[in-house]
């Protein structure tokens, strides 16, 4: 009986030893020489493997970053400038700081202002719906509301607001990886500079129909009237195809365009105070008077 136990132990231990030695030698012989900095860089990265940088995951990012001459083609949107500084330090090369970005939904066609004109009864997918027709509202440009963007977001930053029927971006969770931008068949989502303390001003509409048609389809549509362009003193707004666009680089967040917009297509978010529409209108009117008097 005892001998059985002893033999068992001896054989198992021997087997273990032999296998360990084999593994050791195989590991030595077939070792793949890899730049040790790849591992260092990869450890610094958030490890979300979201692909937001344009590479197939964090390892591919690290691998290409180590080989790259500069970091102009490498930016981890999840880690942001902090992580990129560390990566640059490891690699000993310069990095370009990027202004933090956030996803912005450019449709404000809520259920209340954009009436449904038919009932969609297909698969709950914006992609399927967009391939079928212009949508269940009069606006052929607006949000289809099936939540493809919500489905692709790996950070839980997007959710559908059942009241408006539109997706809502949670600034704190959004890492600007750009997946939702690609998922939206109507190209409604834009990555914009987050702005100082998150304050930003944008045209929340993509409708390029002529004014009356746009207005008929949606109460919040940009009708291409151009008032914002005339109001803006910073030349930040351009009007093309009946649709205004605010350049975040030039916008000074004065909110004049927002106050003057006749439809509510222009949107300001994260401002500490509510919009003083009448005050601004008065100010703009006074300025115009001055200009015309001169």
């Amino acid at each position: 009986m005892d001998s059985i136990v002893i033999w068992t132990i001896v054989i198992l231990a021997g087997l273990g030893l032999v296998l360990a030695l084999m593994l050791f030698f195989i590991a030595k012989k077939f070792k793949v020489e890899e730049d040790p900095r790849i591992e260092l860089v990869e450890k610094t990265l958030p490890g979300a493997n979201c692909g937001g940088c344009g590479y197939a995951g964090c390892h591919a990012f690290a691998d290409t970053a180590v080989k790259a001459a500069d970091l102009s083609a490498h930016f981890c949107p999840v880690g942001g400038n902090d992580v990129m500084k560390q990566v640059a330090a490891i690699l000993g090369i310069e990095m370009v700081e990027k202004a933090p970005q956030v996803a912005v939904v450019r449709c404000n066609g809520t259920c209340a202002v954009r009436p449904k004109i038919n009932v969609y009864d297909g698969a709950a997918s914006c992609r399927v719906k967009a391939a079928l027709y212009s949508g269940d509202t009069g606006c052929a440009f607006g949000c289809l509301g099936c939540g493809d963007c919500v489905a692709v977001c790996e950070f839980g930053a997007l959710s559908m607001n059942p009241e408006t029927g539109l997706p809502v971006v949670d600034d704190a969770k959004c890492v600007a990886c750009g997946k939702c931008v690609a998922a939206c068949p109507k190209k409604l989502i834009e990555l914009r500079a987050k702005g100082p303390r998150g304050m930003r001003e944008f045209v929340s509409c993509r409708n390029t129909d002529k004014g009356p048609a746009a207005k008929k389809a949606c109460g919040n549509a940009c009708i291409g009237c151009g008032i914002c362009v005339k109001t803006c003193t910073h030349e930040a707004i351009t009007l093309e195809n009946n649709l205004a666009y605010i350049d975040p680089a030039k916008c000074k967040l004065c909110r004049e365009c927002e106050a003057m917009c006749p439809t509510g297509a222009i949107h300001g978010v994260n401002f500490p105070k509510p919009l003083d529409r009448e005050g601004i209108k008065g100010r703009v009117a006074a300025r115009k008077k001055e200009v015309s008097n001169e």
């Binding site: 297909g122 698969a123 997918s125 992609r127 399927v128 391939a131």
Partner: peptide
């Protein structure tokens, strides 16, 4: 199951 809706996309 909306099979064709998805298969059409898959075909694309």
């Amino acid at each position: 199951i909306p099979l064709l809706d998805h298969v059409r996309q898959a075909k694309g």
